[in-house]
Simulated scan of single mutants.
Amino acid sequence: MRRSFHIIGLALTLLILSGAFPVNARAEKVSTRAEFAGDVICLPGVYLTEPDSCLPVGPSSVLTELAREGIVYPAPSLPVSKPPVSLNEIPYQYAKIISPSAPLYGSPAQGDARVPAFMLKGATRYISYSNISQTENGKYFESSSGLWVDGGDVARAAVQVFQGVVVHDTPKTQFGWILTNGHSRAEPDFNTPEGKHEVLPGEFYPILGTKQVGDTLWVMIDLNEWIEDRIIGRIIPVTVPPQGVNNGRWVDINLEEQSLAVYDNNKMVFATLVSTGTKPFYTKPGLFTIYQKKDKETMSGDFSGDKSGYYYLEDVPWTMYFDKLRALHGAYWHARFGYDASHGCVNLSIGDSRWLYDWAKVGDYVYVYDPSGQTPTDPSFYTDGGA
């Protein structure tokens, strides 16, 4: 929170003494019993039942009314910390193939002679290269497949850095990351003008409460600061394990929020944003177990029928298979975490996938669900899946 709690406490005390604390119309429901005349004003706090020893007016009336609406203020301190930056380190360098049809050669000499061993076509193609060779005719990149690509057919790819948070105890409130630029409003209403406070992608906020107004879910990130749910990816803590989880360890994947939380001993220990399957390549809801872990994997596939959608991805790091070809893994080719973007896998940032890979064991549960109910649940709808 941008305001510290001791400043809030001081401000509330001063407002009580001055009588200047703003009380809106909804707070007028506080008791006006004559017997309270001359009584002591309650300390600022939430009074869901009317106290006998003090008068809950001023700040208390506002805080109590917020609590009745499910809003926690001030927000409790979140028991989270940043993971080590070193988790982002990987022993691979990547390059994106930019030519519509790229020849792959058995050696730089074959490249100079323009004798390809293979033509790689498709929509999304990345190589992991370990060596660059310069000849009189050009530069060649050696991919992890052992084949060489002309330097004119590739562009080096920089891996985007995003990391979630290590959680030291299950938080009492929701929290999340801003997905796209926006401005907060003083009320959860489009008729309320946007305020001066701009929220920016990647910013991290505790969530004080939510409110459904028509078709829009509004999220409160500070007192009198509301934003639309669509611009924040939320972590919604759970206190009861999914049905079928009997050991207190599971990976919790919320398809509606595009978020992931890890629970150990029934307590949240990690949380982040992910990218799951986009329509019609949804990530299948259900309870699964991790059945294989691989520190790197080459993934390829095509769901278009005419190879126009073919993808080829070398050295995908920190891969954990849980539902046929659907896996949790690092994604270096995009950074759309918080939005659906895959062919069914659960994409994480490099650092987050490394954290999860180190924590997870074969046999750990993976629970995938969609609170919105928009993801198909009929098993016959799903293929084996892909990256």
Score class of each variant (00 low, 15 high):
Trp226Pro: 13
Ile235Leu: 10
Val245His: 09
Trp250Gly: 07
Asn266Gln: 08
Thr192Tyr: 07
Pro206Arg: 06
Met220Val: 05
Phe281Cys: 04
Val269Phe: 03
Glu225Cys: 13
Arg249Thr: 14
Thr276Ser: 06
Pro206Asn: 06
Asn181Thr: 07
Glu203Ser: 10
Ile232Ser: 13
Glu257Arg: 13
Val274Ser: 10
Asn247Ser: 12
Val238Ile: 13
Leu217Cys: 15
Leu208Gln: 05
Val274Leu: 11
Gly233Ser: 14
Ile221Pro: 06
Glu187Trp: 13
Arg234Ile: 03
Asn246Leu: 11
Trp250Cys: 06
Ile232Trp: 02
Trp218Gln: 07
Asp252Pro: 13
Ala261Val: 12
Ile236His: 05
Val219Arg: 14
Val245Met: 06
Glu198Met: 08
Ile253Lys: 01
Ile235Lys: 00
His183Trp: 06
Lys196Ala: 09
Gly202Ser: 06
Lys211Thr: 06
Phe270Glu: 09
Ile231Leu: 14
Ala186Met: 11
Asn224Lys: 12
Tyr263Ser: 06
Pro201Cys: 03
Trp218Cys: 02
Gly248Trp: 07
Lys211Gly: 03
Val251Glu: 14
Glu228Met: 09
Asn181Pro: 02
Val269Cys: 12
Met268His: 00
Gly244Met: 02
Pro242Trp: 08
Thr192Ser: 15
Arg234Asp: 01
Asp222Pro: 12
Asp264Trp: 09
Ser259Phe: 03
Thr239Pro: 01
Pro193Leu: 00
Pro201Ser: 05
Ile236Tyr: 04
Gly195Ile: 01
Asn246Glu: 15
Thr180Pro: 02
Glu194Lys: 08
Leu260Val: 13
Gln258Ile: 07
Arg230Gly: 06
Pro280Trp: 03
Pro193Glu: 04
Glu198Pro: 01
Tyr263Asp: 05
Glu228Cys: 05
Ile236Cys: 05
Ala186Trp: 08
Asn181Trp: 07
Leu200Asp: 06
Asn224Asp: 15
Val269Met: 00
His183Phe: 07
Ile227Gln: 05
Glu187Val: 05
Leu208Trp: 03
Phe281Met: 11
Thr216Asp: 15
Leu208Arg: 01
Asn265Ser: 14
Val240Arg: 05
His197Arg: 09
Pro280Gly: 13
Leu223Cys: 11
Ile207Leu: 08
Leu223Gln: 14
Arg185Ile: 05
Gln243Val: 11
Asp252Lys: 07
Val219Tyr: 04
Arg230Ser: 13
Val199Tyr: 01
Leu223Asp: 14
Asp264Ile: 12
Ala261Met: 15
Ser184Asp: 10
Ile221Cys: 03
Thr239Asn: 12
Glu187Leu: 10
Met268Pro: 00
Leu217Met: 14
Ala271His: 08
Lys196Val: 10
Asp189Lys: 10
Ala186His: 13
Phe281Ile: 03
His197Met: 04
Ile253Asn: 01
Ile227Trp: 07
Ala261Thr: 14
Gly244Val: 11
Ala261Pro: 11
Thr239Trp: 09
Trp218Ser: 02
Asp215Lys: 12
Asp222Val: 10
Glu203Phe: 04
Pro237Asn: 09
His183Thr: 08
Thr216Phe: 04
Asp229Asn: 11
Ala261Phe: 10
Pro242Ala: 02
Val269Asp: 07
Asn224Pro: 06
Gln212Tyr: 04
Thr239Gly: 09
Ile231Arg: 14
Pro193Ile: 01
Phe204Met: 03
Glu225Gly: 11
Trp226Ala: 07
Thr180Leu: 04
Met220Glu: 14
Gln212Asp: 15
